[in-house]
């Protein structure tokens, strides 16, 4: 069954076709989300929301791009929504803590260990993920799609609606920022 036939069936709310879509792209969605959100539970939650959105908005999918590009776009936007919500919650909890109503928030989240990282790289990768967390959203998006999803500049450009050169410059800036953040971390660890 090709992509068009699959989409046509999902538009008719066919359960089996939807199952095929989910099982084909669930790893891609989950892997992107976990790289972005750095938390397995949040990634699972977001992946479910992505496929719910796929099911609901499939009628508006015009097949001008590949299914995978469309699903990547939904994933990225859901991850951004999730980060925004988390930030809002954090800010609210911070205000509450100022008034002494909530003392549980001010603890930093534990280091994130990606399940796909080689054992010998675990510590370094945890530090790198900590630095990725501090990147501006666009740079973070480009870096995650390039390094964790292994996408080419052209594919990232299609997802982010930008040119290959724009993606290239985003990645260069991301690498520079990561290097300087890592430098700070190592200097802090050594002192």
């Amino acid at each position: 069954m090709n992509e068009s036939e699959l989409i046509a069936l999902v538009k008719k709310k066919d359960r089996e076709a939807f199952k095929v879509i989910v099982e084909t792209w669930q790893n891609m969605v989950f892997n992107t989300a976990i790289g972005f959100l750095q938390n397995a539970e949040d990634a699972e939650d977001t992946a479910q929301e992505v496929f719910m959105q796929v099911f609901e908005s499939v009628s508006s999918f015009k097949e001008e791009s590949k299914i995978s590009t469309w699903i990547y776009r939904i994933t990225v936007s859901k991850c951004l929504d999730h980060l925004r919500k988390k930030k809002r919650k954090k800010r609210f909890a911070f205000i509450q803590s100022l008034y002494g109503k909530n003392d549980s928030l001010m603890i930093d989240p534990p280091d994130f260990f990606h399940p796909g990282v080689k054992v010998e790289n675990k510590e370094n990768a945890a530090l790198l993920f900590k630095a990725i967390e501090k990147l501006p959203v666009n740079q973070k998006m480009a870096f995650v799609l390039n390094k964790i999803e292994n996408l080419s500049y052209r594919e990232i450009g299609e997802i982010m609606n930008s040119s290959e050169s724009a993606v290239d410059s985003l990645l260069q800036r991301a690498k520079k920022n990561l290097q300087s953040t890592l430098k700070e971390y190592y200097l802090l660890l050594d002192s």
Partner: peptide
């Protein structure tokens, strides 16, 4: 540290994702 993600394997959700 910058190269620590080279050769990273893809993470996958827990089994029975579709059921959930």
């Amino acid at each position: 540290a910058m190269q620590s993600l080279d050769g990273i394997e893809k993470a996958s959700p827990r089994p029975f994702f579709f059921t959930r």
